[in-house]
Structures are given as C-alpha cells and as structure tokens.
Amino acid sequence: MGFDIPKAYATILFTSFRTPNGFVQTLLKFVPLLLQALAFTVPLTAGKFNIGGEGQLIVGAIGATAVGILFAGLPLPLLLPLVILGGILFGAFWAAIPAWLLYRFGINEILTTVMMNFVSFSFVDYVATEIWRDPAAGHPTTIPIGVGGEIPLLVARPPLNSGIFLVVLVAAVVYVYVNRTPGGYELVAAGANPRASRVFGINVRKMFLLSLILGGALAGLSGAVEVAGVHHRLIEGLQSNFLLLGIIIGLIARGNLLAVPFVAFFIAVLEVGASALQRTMMIPVEMVFIIEALVLLFVLLSDVVRRR
C-alpha cells in the first residue's frame, strides 16, 4: 500500500523503547493490557470464556471513582487502598452476574459477558453525565477523585505511576495461585476434564463461578488503576480497546500465565508504535490491530502444523 516498511519497523521500536516518553507510554499500556489478559486467562484455565473484561473494567473504574469522590477527604494510606478495593469489588460484582447465571441456570457465559459490556457503556455514561459530571469537560467526564486516591508517581516527567509494581505483583500471585496451590489445581482440573473432576469431588460449577469472579476482580482492578493511576477521574471511553487486546494476548499466550506478561509487553510495544505510525506515517492504527489478529491466527495455526 505504498508505505516504507523498514521505516515503519524502526518507528515502532524507536518510539516504544528509545524515547523516554514512548517507553513510559509502553509501560502505561502494559498495565491494563496485562490485567485484561489475566482477566481472560484465569477463567480460561477453568475452561470458561470471559469476554466481559471491558464491562468489568468500566464498572471497576466506576467503583473506584465513586469511592474516590465520596471519601475524597481521606489521606492517601486510607483512600488509595479503598479506591483499589472499590474497583476490584465492582469488577467482581459485574462478573458475578453472568457467573451466577451460569451457576444457577447453566447459561453460556460468552453471550452474557458480552451483553454486560454493552450495559456498562450506558452505566458509565449515566455516571459521567448525570451523577458526578464535570461541567468544564467537553466529553462525558466526572469530577476528579480525592488527591489521596491517586497512585504515587514513580517518575514525575513523563508521568509514570507506580501501579506497574502492583500489577506485576498481582500477575505473580495469580501465577502462583493457579499453578502452585490446591485451589488453583481444582480450577485447572475443572477446566481440563469436568467429568473426571466431578468424580474426584471437585465442585465444578463452583469452580466456574469462582474463575469468572476472579477474572472480574482482575478486570475491575485494571479499571481502578486507570482511574487512580492515569486519569484521576472517570472518563467515558477510558477502556480503549483493552478487552480485545487482552483476549488476543491470552490466546497468543495460549492460557499460559507465565507467558502472558511477556506477550502483553510485546503487544504494548506494538500499540504504542502504532499510534506513532499514525502520527508520522499516516498509517491508521487499525492496521496494527489487524496485524495482531493475524499474529493470533498464525500462533493458532502452529498448533495445526505441530499436529501433523
């Protein structure tokens, strides 16, 4: 299509690593992507597909913002944990609805989680235009949360919040939980062979329920980090396309929790490079999204090749 390909590669790598601003951008993208990927991958270990990470992120962000605004006066050591907790609980609640429907009625979780995404779009619009609207902003946005609810900065300029430590820690804990504890083993067993697990006394349906709620909690945390770390307020559309990228990451990593952070970083590099490409070479960002979808297809194809 008439674009200079080597230059495009150079732009992606240069902006994502060499410039301080670009590198910070990459790290800031990495945080929600990793959490979204985990929110998809953890239910996947139990054989459940959580396509609702977007809604869980949004509702988590609403929860974090609500806490941050209602208790705006509290000092940092109190407010920040509450804000984060608010995000986690709201995200878990949003996932608990499809999870309960699956548990109680046996309704396929794929559709219900997707539907909950669409419901959350209206929810955030309501919160940002009716409840805590910031009249100064042109776009639906809430007033800022209390200063105590902001995640402390690691680097002041360009601003990088220390949420990245929290997220890497969470990823490690999730990995240990799923791969090294009896509870995690039950989760994996329920996904690998529900019938055998039932015979061995694992409550498979409860495991499905748990896995989805855990996923929702992780997605809710990503919403809380976006609010407390980056925007310090709720902005409509702050979820970007994190959900889709999270699913792509989870699928490229093939549900391997150890691989997820590395793939997430790779995708974060591509994404930041892509927005640079849009600015400098006029290549639409969707190009990179298609490339990511193709990478996913090829990774999946490698399974087929290996089978032969």
């Binding site: 889709l244 699913i247 792509i248 699928l251 639409p284 969707e286 190009m287 999204f289 298609i290 990511e292 979808a293 193709l294 996913l296 297809l297 999946l300």
Partner: peptide, 12 residues
C-alpha cells in the same frame, strides 16, 4: 479471531 479481524478491517 475473525471477529477481531473484521473489527479492524471495517475501520481500516
């Protein structure tokens, strides 16, 4: 995967 592909392709 095809859903993602279509999503990107439509806007592109």
């Amino acid at each position: 995967a095809l859903f993602f592909f279509g999503l990107g392709l439509s806007t592109l």
